[in-house]
């Protein structure tokens, strides 16, 4: 155990990489979610088809498979990525596809009457989306987004398999060096757990803020079935 404690700075460096990966991928995923999610609610056939294709393609392939593909296959046709870039791209595209479904479902779940009131005020289609529908949809998006953020953070552990020195990778190194298998893995499990709880707190804070903005009573207790279903990294969406 003392070997593990001595090497704690090494694990901290690993967790810093894990955190960076999480943030970069989450930012990319969020941008893609909003873009393709909003496209998925438009009336035009072409934008909806583009959105559908993106979602089905990148939700269908596991992040690890995408990562291997970007990292090992694409260089063979001349596209070369650094491991970090391939990892962020794979995670961002993958979780962006889940997020796009959340965004699309949340916008569609805003009561139709709100859309109609926006038409009656003569807001343009873009203004309806930006000023009325999207702000209200955000409150519906946050709980499933919170789930997805935690899932994304957990999924970063796979980058160790493409030689990125994240927390899991450092743990494997340490295990090889010290043989303290149980202590090493127990330690990083706790570290991952702490990171997850911190992210959870951040999401709760954002949820409370949007609830206040919409004048809603903050939800108490445990998540509803729709939220649990929407956070499933399977095929779920809201509504």
């Amino acid at each position: 155990m003392s070997d593990v404690l001595d090497s704690f700075p090494l694990l901290l460096r690993g967790s810093w990489i894990t955190l960076q990966l999480t943030v970069y991928s989450a930012v990319l995923a969020l941008a893609l979610s909003l873009l393709f999610g909003v496209l998925g609610t438009t009336r035009g056939l072409a934008p909806r088809a583009v959105s559908r294709f993106y979602v089905e393609f990148f939700r269908g392939a596991p992040a690890l498979v995408l990562m291997f593909w970007f990292f090992y296959s694409l260089p063979l046709i001349g596209l070369r990525f650094t491991p970090m870039f391939a990892a962020v791209l794979a995670l961002g595209l993958n979780y962006g596809a889940y997020g796009a479904e959340v965004v699309r479902g949340s916008i569609n779940a805003v009561p139709k009457a709100q859309y109609e009131a926006a038409v009656a005020l003569n807001l343009t289609p873009a203004q309806r989306m930006r000023r009325v529908l999207l702000p209200q949809a955000v409150a519906l998006m946050l709980p499933p987004f919170g789930n997805l953020l935690i899932e994304l953070m957990k999924a970063t552990a796979v980058v160790s398999l493409v030689t990125i020195a994240d927390l899991m990778f450092r743990a494997q190194q340490l295990r090889a060096a010290t043989g303290e298998t149980a202590a090493v893995f127990a330690t990083i499990l706790v570290m991952y757990f702490v990171i997850a709880q911190l992210l959870q707190l951040l999401v709760r804070y954002l949820e409370r803020r949007t609830d206040r903005m919409l004048g809603r009573r903050p939800r108490k207790g445990q998540p509803e079935l729709r939220t649990v279903a929407a956070g499933a990294p399977g095929v779920g969406g809201v509504g």
Binding site: A113, Q114, E116, A117, A118, V132, P135, Q136, M213, L214, G215, R216
Partner: peptide, 8 residues
């Protein structure tokens, strides 16, 4: 009928 004020 239902007012439809914007809650945001």
């Amino acid at each position: 009928q239902q007012f439809n004020l914007f809650p945001n």
